[in-house]
Amino acid sequence: MLVDDSKFMRALLKKVMASAHNIVGEAENGVEAVDMYEQLSPDIVLMDIVMPHMDGILATSNIVGKHPDAKIIMCTSVGQDEKVKAAIKAGARGYITKPFQGPSVLKEVESLLGQ
């Protein structure tokens, strides 16, 4: 499942993931992400940090609060160290900084799926 307020970033992640994984849902903000997680129970979530309505950290905290085994990878921008720390506390299990390289995202996803 992809969560990002940028349509372009969602398309890019979809393109990167499409070779090996199915994208079951896309959300534009944290509120949508929390609802969608309940409905779809995806294997893994790629979650942007900065989003309107509810950011990725709060959304992660909400999802992990109900589903402690949820596998969430945060997608951060360069220089968001403090947010990364908050995401770790919230329960994120992987971290990717933008701009990313497709094969590394896939590797990170597969590594987390294998845990």
């Binding site: 990717i96 933008k98 390289q101 497709g102 590394s104 590797k107 990170e108």
Partner: peptide, 9 residues
């Protein structure tokens, strides 16, 4: 520290 953007924790 990162590979292809993925943080190596």
């Amino acid at each position: 520290a990162k590979v292809g953007g993925a943080i190596q924790d």
